[in-house]
Design a binder for these strands. Sequence first.
RNA 1: GUGGGUGUAGCUCAGUUGGUUAGAGCACCUGGUUGUGGUCCAGGGGGUCAUGGGUUCGAGCCCCAUCAUCCACCCCA
Length: 431
Amino acid sequence: MSFQAVKGTRDFYPDAMRLRNWITDAWRRVSLRNGFEEFDSPIFEYLDLFAAKSGPEIAEQLFSFTDRGGRNLAIRPEITPALARMVNARINALPRPIKWFSIPRLCRAENPQKGRLREFFQWNIDIIGEDSPLADAECVFVAIDAMRELGLTAGEVAVRYSSRALTSRVLAAVGVTVADVPAVLAVLDKRAKVPAEAFAEMLAKAVPDEPARQAIGRFLQIDNPMGISADQLAGLVGIQADPQIAAAQRDLERFARGLEDFGAAEWCRYDSNVVRGLAYYTGIVYEVFDRDQSLRALAGGGRYDNLLEVLGGPKVGGTGFGMGDVVLGILLEEKGKLPADLRNPRLDFFVVDGLEGQLGKVLEVVGALRRAGLSADFSYKSQPVGKQLKEANRRGAARAAIVKQDVVTVKNLSSGVQQDRPLAEFLDKPT
RNA sequence: GUGGGUGUAGCUCAGUUGGUUAGAGCACCUGGUUGUGGUCCAGGGGGUCAUGGGUUCGAGCCCCAUCAUCCACCCCA
Protein backbone atom coordinates (compact mmCIF):
# COMPACT_ATOMS: atom_id res chain seq x y z
CA MET A 1 0.00 0.00 0.00
CA SER A 2 1.50 3.30 -1.00
CA PHE A 3 0.13 6.76 -0.94
CA GLN A 4 0.69 9.91 -2.86
CA ALA A 5 -0.21 13.53 -2.33
CA VAL A 6 -3.81 14.33 -3.27
CA LYS A 7 -4.44 15.74 -6.74
CA GLY A 8 -3.65 19.42 -6.92
CA THR A 9 -1.67 19.52 -3.67
CA ARG A 10 2.05 19.91 -3.13
CA ASP A 11 4.55 18.46 -0.70
CA PHE A 12 7.01 21.04 0.46
CA TYR A 13 10.35 19.29 0.79
CA PRO A 14 13.01 21.54 2.35
CA ASP A 15 14.01 22.94 -1.07
CA ALA A 16 10.45 23.88 -1.92
CA MET A 17 9.81 25.10 1.60
CA ARG A 18 12.73 27.51 1.38
CA LEU A 19 11.30 28.86 -1.84
CA ARG A 20 7.85 29.22 -0.33
CA ASN A 21 9.26 31.02 2.69
CA TRP A 22 11.32 33.27 0.48
CA ILE A 23 8.13 34.43 -1.22
CA THR A 24 5.94 34.67 1.87
CA ASP A 25 8.69 36.42 3.84
CA ALA A 26 8.85 39.04 1.08
CA TRP A 27 5.06 39.44 1.20
CA ARG A 28 5.15 39.89 4.95
CA ARG A 29 8.06 42.36 4.82
CA VAL A 30 6.33 44.45 2.18
CA SER A 31 3.01 44.40 4.04
CA LEU A 32 4.56 45.64 7.26
CA ARG A 33 6.56 48.42 5.68
CA ASN A 34 3.41 49.64 3.95
CA GLY A 35 1.62 49.89 7.28
CA PHE A 36 -0.51 46.73 7.20
CA GLU A 37 -1.15 44.45 10.18
CA GLU A 38 -1.36 40.69 9.89
CA PHE A 39 -4.46 38.68 10.74
CA ASP A 40 -5.65 35.15 10.16
CA SER A 41 -8.90 33.22 10.36
CA PRO A 42 -9.90 29.57 10.78
CA ILE A 43 -9.16 27.25 7.90
CA PHE A 44 -12.82 26.22 7.77
CA GLU A 45 -16.02 28.24 8.13
CA TYR A 46 -19.74 27.80 7.81
CA LEU A 47 -20.53 27.02 4.19
CA ASP A 48 -23.15 29.75 4.30
CA LEU A 49 -20.50 32.42 4.75
CA PHE A 50 -19.14 31.67 1.30
CA ALA A 51 -22.56 31.08 -0.20
CA ALA A 52 -23.77 34.45 1.11
CA LYS A 53 -20.94 36.16 -0.70
CA SER A 54 -20.77 34.21 -3.92
CA GLY A 55 -24.11 32.45 -4.30
CA PRO A 56 -25.11 28.86 -3.60
CA GLU A 57 -23.38 27.54 -6.74
CA ILE A 58 -20.07 28.17 -5.04
CA ALA A 59 -20.59 24.99 -3.00
CA GLU A 60 -19.62 22.95 -6.05
CA GLN A 61 -16.26 24.62 -6.22
CA LEU A 62 -15.09 24.19 -2.67
CA PHE A 63 -14.36 21.39 -0.28
CA SER A 64 -17.30 21.12 2.05
CA PHE A 65 -18.32 18.65 4.72
CA THR A 66 -20.72 18.11 7.56
CA ASP A 67 -19.32 17.84 11.06
CA ARG A 68 -20.64 15.50 13.72
CA GLY A 69 -22.95 18.22 14.98
CA GLY A 70 -24.59 18.43 11.58
CA ARG A 71 -23.00 21.79 10.71
CA ASN A 72 -22.35 22.46 7.03
CA LEU A 73 -18.77 23.62 6.81
CA ALA A 74 -16.26 24.34 4.08
CA ILE A 75 -12.52 24.81 3.79
CA ARG A 76 -11.91 28.45 2.94
CA PRO A 77 -11.49 29.10 -0.80
CA GLU A 78 -10.68 32.75 -0.08
CA ILE A 79 -10.21 34.79 3.05
CA THR A 80 -12.15 37.94 2.20
CA PRO A 81 -15.47 36.71 3.64
CA ALA A 82 -13.71 35.88 6.91
CA LEU A 83 -12.06 39.28 6.87
CA ALA A 84 -15.47 40.90 6.44
CA ARG A 85 -16.89 38.73 9.22
CA MET A 86 -14.09 39.66 11.61
CA VAL A 87 -14.25 43.36 10.79
CA ASN A 88 -18.05 43.41 11.06
CA ALA A 89 -17.84 41.90 14.52
CA ARG A 90 -15.72 44.78 15.78
CA ILE A 91 -16.58 47.48 13.32
CA ASN A 92 -17.15 50.10 16.00
CA ALA A 93 -14.00 49.36 17.94
CA LEU A 94 -11.45 49.23 15.14
CA PRO A 95 -9.61 52.44 14.26
CA ARG A 96 -9.90 53.29 10.59
CA PRO A 97 -8.67 52.89 8.02
CA ILE A 98 -8.30 49.21 8.75
CA LYS A 99 -5.17 48.09 6.88
CA TRP A 100 -4.80 44.34 7.27
CA PHE A 101 -2.99 41.61 5.42
CA SER A 102 -2.97 37.83 5.54
CA ILE A 103 -1.20 34.92 3.88
CA PRO A 104 -3.80 32.16 4.14
CA ARG A 105 -3.62 28.63 2.83
CA LEU A 106 -6.70 28.18 0.62
CA CYS A 107 -8.40 25.26 -1.12
CA ARG A 108 -10.65 25.14 -4.14
CA ALA A 109 -12.12 21.99 -5.68
CA GLU A 110 -11.16 22.79 -9.24
CA ASN A 111 -9.26 20.89 -11.86
CA PRO A 112 -5.58 21.65 -11.59
CA GLN A 113 -3.69 23.11 -14.52
CA LYS A 114 -0.77 25.43 -15.07
CA GLY A 115 -0.73 28.07 -12.34
CA ARG A 116 -3.79 26.68 -10.66
CA LEU A 117 -3.87 24.06 -7.92
CA ARG A 118 -6.37 22.83 -5.37
CA GLU A 119 -4.34 24.08 -2.46
CA PHE A 120 -2.28 27.24 -2.53
CA PHE A 121 -1.25 30.33 -0.62
CA GLN A 122 -2.65 33.72 -1.35
CA TRP A 123 -1.40 37.04 -0.05
CA ASN A 124 -4.28 39.39 0.71
CA ILE A 125 -4.00 43.13 1.21
CA ASP A 126 -7.10 45.06 2.24
CA ILE A 127 -8.01 48.56 3.32
CA ILE A 128 -11.45 48.88 4.90
CA GLY A 129 -13.22 52.07 5.91
CA GLU A 130 -11.56 54.43 3.47
CA ASP A 131 -13.57 55.50 0.44
CA SER A 132 -10.88 57.54 -1.27
CA PRO A 133 -9.48 56.09 -4.51
CA LEU A 134 -6.11 56.77 -2.93
CA ALA A 135 -6.71 53.63 -0.89
CA ASP A 136 -7.05 51.68 -4.15
CA ALA A 137 -3.88 53.33 -5.42
CA GLU A 138 -2.06 52.39 -2.25
CA CYS A 139 -3.05 48.74 -2.65
CA VAL A 140 -1.71 48.75 -6.19
CA PHE A 141 1.47 50.35 -4.92
CA VAL A 142 1.83 47.55 -2.37
CA ALA A 143 1.43 44.93 -5.11
CA ILE A 144 4.13 46.64 -7.16
CA ASP A 145 6.33 47.03 -4.12
CA ALA A 146 6.17 43.26 -3.70
CA MET A 147 6.97 42.64 -7.37
CA ARG A 148 10.02 44.83 -7.01
CA GLU A 149 10.99 43.17 -3.73
CA LEU A 150 10.99 39.80 -5.51
CA GLY A 151 13.21 41.12 -8.28
CA LEU A 152 10.64 41.74 -11.01
CA THR A 153 10.69 44.90 -13.10
CA ALA A 154 8.17 47.12 -14.87
CA GLY A 155 9.38 45.52 -18.08
CA GLU A 156 8.33 42.09 -16.85
CA VAL A 157 5.00 42.68 -15.11
CA ALA A 158 2.26 45.25 -15.46
CA VAL A 159 -0.89 46.38 -13.73
CA ARG A 160 -3.99 46.96 -15.83
CA TYR A 161 -6.87 48.77 -14.25
CA SER A 162 -10.32 50.03 -15.06
CA SER A 163 -13.42 51.15 -13.25
CA ARG A 164 -16.31 48.82 -12.90
CA ALA A 165 -18.42 51.76 -11.74
CA LEU A 166 -17.67 53.62 -14.96
CA THR A 167 -18.24 50.64 -17.20
CA SER A 168 -21.51 49.75 -15.47
CA ARG A 169 -22.83 53.30 -15.72
CA VAL A 170 -21.93 53.52 -19.38
CA LEU A 171 -23.69 50.23 -20.03
CA ALA A 172 -26.77 51.58 -18.24
CA ALA A 173 -26.60 54.76 -20.28
CA VAL A 174 -26.59 52.84 -23.56
CA GLY A 175 -29.69 50.98 -22.42
CA VAL A 176 -28.46 47.77 -20.81
CA THR A 177 -30.80 46.92 -17.95
CA VAL A 178 -29.48 46.53 -14.43
CA ALA A 179 -30.29 42.84 -14.55
CA ASP A 180 -28.25 42.37 -17.73
CA VAL A 181 -25.16 44.30 -16.63
CA PRO A 182 -23.40 41.31 -15.00
CA ALA A 183 -23.88 39.20 -18.11
CA VAL A 184 -22.51 41.94 -20.33
CA LEU A 185 -19.58 42.49 -18.01
CA ALA A 186 -18.87 38.77 -18.28
CA VAL A 187 -18.72 39.14 -22.05
CA LEU A 188 -16.46 42.18 -21.86
CA ASP A 189 -14.15 40.16 -19.64
CA LYS A 190 -13.67 37.80 -22.59
CA ARG A 191 -12.70 40.50 -25.06
CA ALA A 192 -8.97 40.04 -24.80
CA LYS A 193 -9.22 36.27 -24.41
CA VAL A 194 -11.21 35.20 -27.48
CA PRO A 195 -11.01 35.97 -31.21
CA ALA A 196 -12.68 39.19 -32.35
CA GLU A 197 -15.48 37.38 -34.21
CA ALA A 198 -16.27 35.21 -31.21
CA PHE A 199 -16.39 38.30 -29.03
CA ALA A 200 -18.71 40.08 -31.46
CA GLU A 201 -20.98 37.06 -31.44
CA MET A 202 -21.09 36.86 -27.66
CA LEU A 203 -21.74 40.57 -27.37
CA ALA A 204 -24.52 40.41 -29.95
CA LYS A 205 -26.19 37.73 -27.88
CA ALA A 206 -25.91 39.75 -24.67
CA VAL A 207 -26.81 43.09 -26.26
CA PRO A 208 -29.25 42.55 -29.15
CA ASP A 209 -29.58 46.29 -29.83
CA GLU A 210 -27.18 47.26 -32.62
CA PRO A 211 -26.74 51.00 -31.75
CA ALA A 212 -26.11 50.05 -28.11
CA ARG A 213 -23.41 47.61 -29.21
CA GLN A 214 -21.74 50.27 -31.30
CA ALA A 215 -21.80 52.66 -28.36
CA ILE A 216 -20.16 50.01 -26.19
CA GLY A 217 -17.56 49.50 -28.90
CA ARG A 218 -16.80 53.22 -28.90
CA PHE A 219 -16.46 53.19 -25.11
CA LEU A 220 -14.01 50.31 -25.24
CA GLN A 221 -11.86 52.33 -27.66
CA ILE A 222 -11.32 55.09 -25.10
CA ASP A 223 -7.91 54.55 -23.59
CA ASN A 224 -7.85 57.52 -21.23
CA PRO A 225 -11.28 58.13 -19.68
CA MET A 226 -9.73 60.08 -16.81
CA GLY A 227 -8.09 62.57 -19.14
CA ILE A 228 -11.35 63.86 -20.61
CA SER A 229 -14.46 65.54 -19.23
CA ALA A 230 -17.73 63.75 -18.66
CA ASP A 231 -19.23 65.68 -21.58
CA GLN A 232 -16.37 64.66 -23.85
CA LEU A 233 -16.74 61.04 -22.82
CA ALA A 234 -20.49 61.15 -23.35
CA GLY A 235 -19.88 62.70 -26.76
CA LEU A 236 -17.38 60.01 -27.77
CA VAL A 237 -19.68 57.19 -26.74
CA GLY A 238 -22.84 58.90 -27.95
CA ILE A 239 -24.77 58.98 -24.67
CA GLN A 240 -26.16 61.56 -22.27
CA ALA A 241 -23.69 62.97 -19.75
CA ASP A 242 -24.39 61.54 -16.32
CA PRO A 243 -23.24 62.68 -12.86
CA GLN A 244 -22.40 59.12 -11.86
CA ILE A 245 -20.20 58.72 -14.90
CA ALA A 246 -18.49 61.97 -14.00
CA ALA A 247 -17.96 60.69 -10.44
CA ALA A 248 -16.46 57.45 -11.68
CA GLN A 249 -14.13 59.43 -13.93
CA ARG A 250 -13.05 61.62 -11.03
CA ASP A 251 -12.29 58.52 -8.96
CA LEU A 252 -10.23 57.06 -11.76
CA GLU A 253 -8.40 60.34 -12.11
CA ARG A 254 -7.53 60.54 -8.41
CA PHE A 255 -6.50 56.89 -8.51
CA ALA A 256 -4.21 57.46 -11.49
CA ARG A 257 -2.72 60.58 -9.94
CA GLY A 258 -2.11 58.64 -6.73
CA LEU A 259 -0.19 55.99 -8.67
CA GLU A 260 1.88 58.71 -10.26
CA ASP A 261 2.64 60.36 -6.91
CA PHE A 262 3.62 56.97 -5.50
CA GLY A 263 6.08 56.61 -8.37
CA ALA A 264 4.25 53.57 -9.73
CA ALA A 265 2.77 54.98 -12.93
CA GLU A 266 5.18 53.25 -15.29
CA TRP A 267 3.90 49.85 -14.10
CA CYS A 268 0.25 50.70 -14.74
CA ARG A 269 -2.15 51.50 -17.51
CA TYR A 270 -5.87 51.82 -18.06
CA ASP A 271 -7.46 48.88 -19.87
CA SER A 272 -11.19 48.70 -20.40
CA ASN A 273 -10.97 44.91 -20.81
CA VAL A 274 -10.31 44.41 -17.12
CA VAL A 275 -13.57 43.41 -15.50
CA ARG A 276 -12.67 40.80 -12.91
CA GLY A 277 -15.14 37.99 -13.50
CA LEU A 278 -18.47 38.07 -11.73
CA ALA A 279 -17.10 39.15 -8.38
CA TYR A 280 -18.41 41.63 -5.89
CA TYR A 281 -16.36 44.56 -7.11
CA THR A 282 -18.01 47.96 -7.26
CA GLY A 283 -15.35 50.48 -8.28
CA ILE A 284 -11.80 50.45 -9.49
CA VAL A 285 -10.56 46.97 -10.42
CA TYR A 286 -7.13 45.80 -11.53
CA GLU A 287 -5.02 42.80 -12.41
CA VAL A 288 -1.30 42.18 -12.36
CA PHE A 289 0.04 40.32 -15.39
CA ASP A 290 3.34 39.18 -16.77
CA ARG A 291 4.10 41.34 -19.80
CA ASP A 292 4.30 38.35 -22.12
CA GLN A 293 0.86 37.34 -20.90
CA SER A 294 1.75 33.71 -21.15
CA LEU A 295 0.48 33.06 -17.64
CA ARG A 296 -2.67 33.63 -15.66
CA ALA A 297 -3.01 36.81 -13.65
CA LEU A 298 -0.49 37.13 -10.83
CA ALA A 299 -2.91 39.15 -8.73
CA GLY A 300 -6.32 40.72 -8.95
CA GLY A 301 -8.33 43.07 -6.84
CA GLY A 302 -10.44 46.16 -6.53
CA ARG A 303 -13.02 48.01 -4.51
CA TYR A 304 -15.90 46.22 -2.81
CA ASP A 305 -18.22 48.73 -1.18
CA ASN A 306 -21.13 46.36 -0.47
CA LEU A 307 -19.44 43.27 0.90
CA LEU A 308 -19.57 44.05 4.62
CA GLU A 309 -23.22 44.97 4.31
CA VAL A 310 -24.02 41.82 2.36
CA LEU A 311 -22.48 39.81 5.18
CA GLY A 312 -24.65 41.46 7.79
CA GLY A 313 -22.60 44.52 8.69
CA PRO A 314 -22.87 48.24 8.08
CA LYS A 315 -22.26 49.81 4.69
CA VAL A 316 -18.54 50.31 5.02
CA GLY A 317 -16.44 50.09 1.88
CA GLY A 318 -13.21 48.27 1.31
CA THR A 319 -10.59 47.67 -1.31
CA GLY A 320 -7.82 45.16 -1.76
CA PHE A 321 -6.24 42.39 -3.78
CA GLY A 322 -5.14 38.78 -3.63
CA MET A 323 -1.91 37.36 -5.04
CA GLY A 324 -1.38 33.62 -5.30
CA ASP A 325 1.91 31.82 -4.84
CA VAL A 326 1.53 29.43 -7.77
CA VAL A 327 1.62 31.68 -10.83
CA LEU A 328 4.10 33.96 -9.08
CA GLY A 329 6.40 31.01 -8.44
CA ILE A 330 6.25 29.95 -12.09
CA LEU A 331 7.05 33.46 -13.29
CA LEU A 332 9.95 33.91 -10.87
CA GLU A 333 11.36 30.57 -11.98
CA GLU A 334 10.95 31.38 -15.68
CA LYS A 335 12.58 34.78 -15.25
CA GLY A 336 15.47 33.32 -13.25
CA LYS A 337 14.67 35.41 -10.20
CA LEU A 338 15.06 32.69 -7.63
CA PRO A 339 18.13 33.35 -5.49
CA ALA A 340 20.89 30.77 -5.86
CA ASP A 341 21.62 30.52 -2.15
CA LEU A 342 18.15 29.09 -1.62
CA ARG A 343 19.83 25.82 -2.52
CA ASN A 344 21.65 25.57 0.78
CA PRO A 345 20.45 26.20 4.28
CA ARG A 346 22.56 28.69 6.13
CA LEU A 347 24.85 27.30 8.80
CA ASP A 348 27.23 29.63 10.68
CA PHE A 349 29.49 26.91 12.00
CA PHE A 350 30.19 23.27 11.42
CA VAL A 351 32.08 21.93 14.41
CA VAL A 352 34.75 19.39 13.56
CA ASP A 353 36.32 16.90 15.93
CA GLY A 354 39.97 17.62 15.17
CA LEU A 355 41.33 14.74 17.22
CA GLU A 356 38.77 12.05 16.37
CA GLY A 357 37.43 10.84 19.68
CA GLN A 358 36.42 13.87 21.68
CA LEU A 359 32.79 14.19 20.72
CA GLY A 360 32.06 15.56 24.20
CA LYS A 361 34.19 18.61 23.58
CA VAL A 362 32.55 19.04 20.19
CA LEU A 363 29.12 19.05 21.82
CA GLU A 364 30.37 21.60 24.33
CA VAL A 365 31.39 23.91 21.49
CA VAL A 366 28.18 23.30 19.57
CA GLY A 367 26.16 24.10 22.69
CA ALA A 368 28.08 27.33 23.28
CA LEU A 369 27.58 28.45 19.69
CA ARG A 370 23.88 27.70 19.73
CA ARG A 371 23.40 29.49 23.06
CA ALA A 372 25.15 32.49 21.50
CA GLY A 373 22.49 32.50 18.78
CA LEU A 374 24.65 31.06 16.02
CA SER A 375 23.58 28.11 13.94
CA ALA A 376 25.93 25.20 14.43
CA ASP A 377 25.96 21.51 13.63
CA PHE A 378 28.35 18.57 13.77
CA SER A 379 28.84 15.04 12.55
CA TYR A 380 27.48 12.11 14.53
CA LYS A 381 30.10 9.86 13.05
CA SER A 382 33.66 9.63 14.29
CA GLN A 383 35.63 10.10 11.12
CA PRO A 384 38.74 11.80 9.75
CA VAL A 385 38.92 15.58 9.65
CA GLY A 386 38.80 15.52 5.88
CA LYS A 387 35.46 13.72 5.86
CA GLN A 388 34.05 16.07 8.44
CA LEU A 389 35.08 19.09 6.39
CA LYS A 390 33.48 17.46 3.38
CA GLU A 391 30.27 17.24 5.32
CA ALA A 392 30.68 20.85 6.49
CA ASN A 393 31.01 21.89 2.88
CA ARG A 394 28.01 19.86 1.83
CA ARG A 395 25.96 21.45 4.59
CA GLY A 396 26.77 24.91 3.29
CA ALA A 397 28.53 26.04 6.47
CA ALA A 398 30.19 29.46 6.41
CA ARG A 399 32.95 28.39 8.80
CA ALA A 400 34.35 25.27 10.36
CA ALA A 401 35.44 25.18 13.98
CA ILE A 402 38.04 22.43 14.27
CA VAL A 403 38.25 21.47 17.92
CA LYS A 404 41.61 20.18 19.15
CA GLN A 405 43.11 19.79 22.65
CA ASP A 406 42.86 23.37 23.92
CA VAL A 407 42.65 25.14 20.60
CA VAL A 408 39.91 25.78 18.08
CA THR A 409 40.91 26.38 14.50
CA VAL A 410 38.33 28.61 12.86
CA LYS A 411 38.36 28.11 9.14
CA ASN A 412 36.46 30.25 6.68
CA LEU A 413 35.19 27.71 4.19
CA SER A 414 34.78 30.05 1.27
CA SER A 415 38.19 31.77 1.51
CA GLY A 416 40.11 28.90 3.12
CA VAL A 417 41.64 31.32 5.62
CA GLN A 418 42.01 29.84 9.09
CA GLN A 419 43.08 31.03 12.51
CA ASP A 420 43.82 29.29 15.83
CA ARG A 421 42.09 30.48 18.98
CA PRO A 422 42.29 29.24 22.57
CA LEU A 423 39.31 26.96 23.26
CA ALA A 424 38.27 28.78 26.45
CA GLU A 425 38.27 32.13 24.71
CA PHE A 426 36.31 30.77 21.76
CA LEU A 427 33.67 29.29 24.06
CA ASP A 428 33.35 32.65 25.80
CA LYS A 429 33.15 34.74 22.64
CA PRO A 430 32.63 32.68 19.47
CA THR A 431 32.34 35.54 17.00
C1' G B 1 -17.73 17.58 -16.61
C1' U B 2 -15.13 17.64 -21.97
C1' G B 3 -10.72 17.00 -25.21
C1' G B 4 -5.50 15.93 -26.00
C1' G B 5 -0.43 14.43 -24.27
C1' U B 6 2.55 11.49 -20.93
C1' G B 7 3.51 7.23 -17.34
C1' U B 8 10.88 2.91 -17.13
C1' A B 9 15.44 4.20 -10.25
C1' G B 10 14.52 9.90 -5.67
C1' C B 11 15.35 13.39 -10.41
C1' U B 12 16.33 13.91 -15.98
C1' C B 13 15.94 10.34 -19.49
C1' A B 14 18.01 5.87 -22.94
C1' G B 15 16.05 1.09 -24.11
C1' U B 16 17.09 -1.35 -31.77
C1' U B 17 11.04 -4.52 -36.65
C1' G B 18 8.82 -7.69 -29.74
C1' G B 19 14.16 -11.79 -28.05
C1' U B 20 18.17 -13.94 -21.96
C1' U B 21 19.56 -11.59 -15.44
C1' A B 22 16.32 -3.47 -17.68
C1' G B 23 20.66 0.87 -18.44
C1' A B 24 23.19 6.03 -18.12
C1' G B 25 23.94 10.78 -15.77
C1' C B 26 22.76 13.32 -11.37
C1' A B 27 21.43 12.41 -6.24
C1' C B 28 22.13 9.03 -1.99
C1' C B 29 25.34 5.40 1.02
C1' U B 30 30.35 3.01 1.84
C1' G B 31 35.57 2.93 1.15
C1' G B 32 40.09 5.17 -0.85
C1' U B 33 42.95 9.60 -2.38
C1' U B 34 43.83 14.93 -1.74
C1' G B 35 48.51 17.86 4.66
C1' U B 36 42.20 20.29 6.46
C1' G B 37 37.02 20.35 2.62
C1' G B 38 35.01 21.71 -2.88
C1' U B 39 38.50 17.40 -7.16
C1' C B 40 39.24 12.49 -8.44
C1' C B 41 38.79 6.90 -8.11
C1' A B 42 36.29 2.32 -6.73
C1' G B 43 32.14 -0.08 -4.88
C1' G B 44 26.94 -0.25 -3.21
C1' G B 45 21.64 0.28 -2.28
C1' G B 46 17.33 1.51 -4.97
C1' G B 47 12.86 -0.41 -10.43
C1' U B 48 6.55 -6.20 -9.66
C1' C B 49 8.95 -0.85 -16.57
C1' A B 50 1.62 3.11 -13.30
C1' U B 51 -2.21 -1.06 -12.53
C1' G B 52 -5.18 -5.08 -14.56
C1' G B 53 -6.33 -7.96 -18.65
C1' G B 54 -5.28 -9.57 -23.83
C1' U B 55 -2.21 -11.05 -28.35
C1' U B 56 2.45 -14.02 -28.75
C1' C B 57 6.92 -19.45 -28.06
C1' G B 58 8.40 -14.71 -25.82
C1' A B 59 5.90 -7.94 -24.02
C1' G B 60 9.21 -2.16 -21.06
C1' C B 61 7.87 -2.26 -26.50
C1' C B 62 1.67 -4.30 -29.73
C1' C B 63 -4.01 -4.07 -28.27
C1' C B 64 -7.99 -2.91 -24.53
C1' A B 65 -9.46 -1.06 -19.88
C1' U B 66 -8.49 1.44 -15.34
C1' C B 67 -5.70 4.85 -12.51
C1' A B 68 -2.34 8.85 -12.03
C1' U B 69 -0.27 13.18 -13.91
C1' C B 70 0.37 17.33 -17.30
C1' C B 71 -1.89 20.77 -20.86
C1' A B 72 -6.29 23.09 -22.73
C1' C B 73 -11.71 24.06 -22.39
C1' C B 74 -15.79 25.23 -18.58
C1' C B 75 -15.06 28.21 -14.26
C1' C B 76 -11.88 31.48 -11.88
C1' A B 77 -13.53 34.44 -5.58
